[in-house]
């Protein structure tokens, strides 16, 4: 555990909590892509199956359980409790275009051809593209509320800090998880355009992030 890894995990947690509280308090999931949230729930589910097979640390176990609970709670809010506010018209990204290639790739490029490893690899690849329905939705509607933008900022920070973590681990331990690093870099690239918009519009503007 290093400071980059720990702050990355905390930023990830903050992002998830920001989103959950936003929906909970406003009793609305307007502007939120339910598809991205389902994909994230699927990411956590397929990655954390090792909860049952290997114990890493109390921290590891607690964080996994918290991520899972929050991910499913958020999906529950969007599709059940506040489903009337769900904007399915704008959430029109075709997720099968992500799921099929990601599933195919996880069978081809993995560390071991075992069910758990393939599912772990699937979760890593899927996470790198799971935010696309949300970014697509923002592009389509042309704007994001500042709180949605804060959510995306913290998710992006989490990614950037994980990159720092991997550089640090490679430097200090010689640890290099090729699949995670390559997918992580791809994932972080998706946030770059958003970072630019965030700093030029949300921070200098009136709150809402509008696209040109």
């Amino acid at each position: 555990m290093n400071i980059f890894r720990l702050s990355g995990d905390v930023c990830h947690l903050i992002a998830i909590i920001i989103l959950f509280l936003k929906i909970w308090r406003s009793k609305s999931c307007a502007g939120i892509s339910g598809k991205s949230q389902v994909l994230f729930a699927l990411v956590f589910t397929t990655r954390y199956l090792d909860l049952f097979t290997s114990y890493i640390s109390a921290y590891n176990t607690v964080m996994k359980v918290v991520y899972l609970l929050l991910a499913y709670s958020t999906v529950g809010l969007i599709f059940f409790r506040f489903r009337n506010s769900y904007d399915s018209e704008s959430d029109s990204f075709r997720v099968e275009f992500l799921l099929v290639p990601v599933a195919g790739l996880s069978f081809l490029e993995n560390y071991a051809f075992t069910p758990l490893e393939i599912l772990w690899t699937f979760s890593i690849y899927l996470e790198s593209v799971a935010i696309l329905p949300q970014l697509f939705m923002i592009t389509k509607t042309g704007e994001a509320e500042s709180i949605t933008a804060h959510y995306l900022l913290f998710l992006g920070l989490y990614r950037a800090l994980y990159l720092a973590n991997w550089l640090w681990r490679f430097h200090t331990e010689g640890f290099y998880d090729q699949i995670a690093v390559v997918s992580g870099v791809v994932q972080t690239i998706f946030y770059c355009d958003f970072f630019y918009l965030y700093f030029t519009r949300v921070l200098r503007g009136s709150g809402k992030m509008s696209l040109p």
Binding site: R5, D9, H12, R47, D50, S54, I56, N60, M63, K64, Y67, Y111, A112, W120, Y162, N165, G174, F175, Y176, D177, Q178, A180
Partner: peptide, 10 residues
Amino acid sequence: VIGRIRHDEL
């Protein structure tokens, strides 16, 4: 450590 890696990250 390329190859089988213990997945200790989240």
